[in-house]
Simulated scan of single mutants.
Amino acid sequence: MEYLEFKITCNQDFTEILIAELAEVGFDSFLETDDGVEAYIQEDIFDREAYDQVILQYHEAAEISVVEGKMPKVNWNEEWEKHYDPISIGKEVYVRASFHATKEDVKYDILINPKMSFGTGHHATTYLMLSHQLEVSHEGKSMIDIGSGTGILAIMAYKLGANHIEAFDIDNWCVENGNENFELNGMNKVKMGHGTIREVNPKGPFDIVMANINKNVLLDEMEIYVSLMKPDANLFLSGFYEHDIPDLQYRAESLGLRLKGQKVKDNWAAIVFERG
């Protein structure tokens, strides 16, 4: 699989907007820089017309310039070792790569060696989802991570005591990387699946359903998520902005869910619904 690389220079106020818009048209990996953002997409799914529409929409206001290229083969462990710093969520969670030292006073130590996968804990949506997880009991429960990326949310569920975990992603890079991260965290019985939720067709039901994707996908797949929930299950959603909450809440409530909690960080949001 070959990746296309787009080095976008833009007004910093538009960086997160461009990330969100490009994610909508198939881009799955991003690196924020001092000048803007580097965006990556699989060559075989790249839609030039959809991409051009996004750039044209913000070109003048964001003062955009782009350098296009093809992603060279690189040693991802070496690259992330240069740029990837561990993060903490309160005093409970410490997310680190294998080349970082352990932290003795932390309750949950999570090892993530990311490749091209989304979800290292650095992005606000992942951080918010992990924060929500700390507030909901996982002990002895079943959990499914939809669009799992690095597998970090599934790993958090395992650390919190979930006894049955399923995870899948549409990207082969994520599946490979997720399985490596599962092994790093002792999850040898969990294997990440490949495909969309309709292709994977998980059976459920689950106590906890999690999806950190984007607004349009969440709205489209919401009914499937609800069908996978036990009567008293929780649904965690992220991958959208704070101003998108009403649309997602309306859709969820129309399917019989009730808003349980919400968190916001850097204009990104994560919400939790419960059934019943």
Rank of each mutant, 00 (worst) to 15 (best):
Q42V: 02
E43P: 00
E43F: 03
D44K: 15
I45S: 15
F46S: 05
D47A: 07
D47L: 01
E49H: 11
A50G: 06
A50I: 00
D52R: 11
V54E: 10
Q57T: 15
Y58K: 04
E60L: 11
A61Y: 07
A62D: 05
E63G: 13
S65R: 10
S65K: 08
S65E: 15
V67W: 11
E68Q: 14
M71I: 13
P72H: 09
N77F: 08
E78L: 15
W80V: 00
W80A: 04
K82T: 01
K82H: 03
D85K: 15
P86K: 07
P86F: 01
I87M: 06
I87N: 09
I87H: 08
I87V: 06
I87W: 06
G90R: 00
K91Y: 14
V93T: 03
V93S: 06
V95P: 14
S98W: 02
F99V: 03
H100Q: 08
A101S: 13
K103E: 08
K103L: 04
K103S: 11
D105N: 14
V106I: 15
K107C: 12
D109T: 06
I112W: 01
I112V: 13
P114A: 08
K115T: 13
K115I: 11
F118S: 02
F118C: 04
G119I: 01
H122K: 05
H123K: 07
H123F: 02
H123T: 01
A124M: 03
T125E: 07
T126F: 03
Y127H: 12
